[in-house]
Amino acid sequence: MAYTSDLRLAQPRAAETGLGGKLQAIMTDLAQRYARYRVFRDTVNDLAILPNSVLADMGLNRSQIRSVAYEYAYGAKK
Rank of each mutant, 00 (worst) to 15 (best):
L60F: 13
P12S: 05
E16H: 14
A56M: 08
Q11R: 07
A2M: 11
Y3I: 06
D46G: 09
Q24A: 15
A48Q: 15
M58R: 14
E16V: 11
Y72R: 04
L9T: 09
A56S: 14
F40E: 00
A56Y: 11
R33I: 02
S63R: 07
A25W: 03
M58C: 11
L47N: 03
V54P: 01
Y72F: 14
M58E: 13
V39S: 01
Q24D: 13
S63C: 07
A35F: 11
S67G: 04
R8L: 12
R38T: 08
A73I: 01
P51A: 10
I26P: 00
D29W: 10
Q64H: 09
R66K: 12
T43E: 08
Y72V: 04
L47W: 04
G20Y: 10
Y37W: 12
M1A: 12
G75T: 02
A25V: 04
R41Q: 11
G59C: 09
A25E: 08
D29F: 14
R66T: 07
L47E: 03
G75V: 03
Q11N: 08
L55A: 06
R36K: 14
Q11A: 13
S67D: 14
A25G: 03
G20D: 12
A48D: 15
S67F: 11
M58Q: 13
L7D: 12
R8A: 08
V54S: 12
P51F: 13
R66S: 07
L7Y: 09
D46T: 12
T43I: 04
P12V: 01
V54M: 10
K22H: 11
L50G: 01
R62Q: 07
A35M: 10
I49C: 10
A73D: 04
R38Q: 11
G20Q: 07
Y74P: 00
A2G: 06
A69T: 01
A76F: 15
Q32C: 02
T17R: 05
A56F: 11
I49P: 04
K22M: 13
T17D: 02
L47V: 07
V44G: 00
R8M: 08
L47M: 14
L50P: 00
G59Y: 05
N61K: 13
D42K: 01
A69E: 01
D42L: 01
M58S: 09
L60A: 06
N52E: 15
P12G: 02
Q11V: 12
T4Y: 10
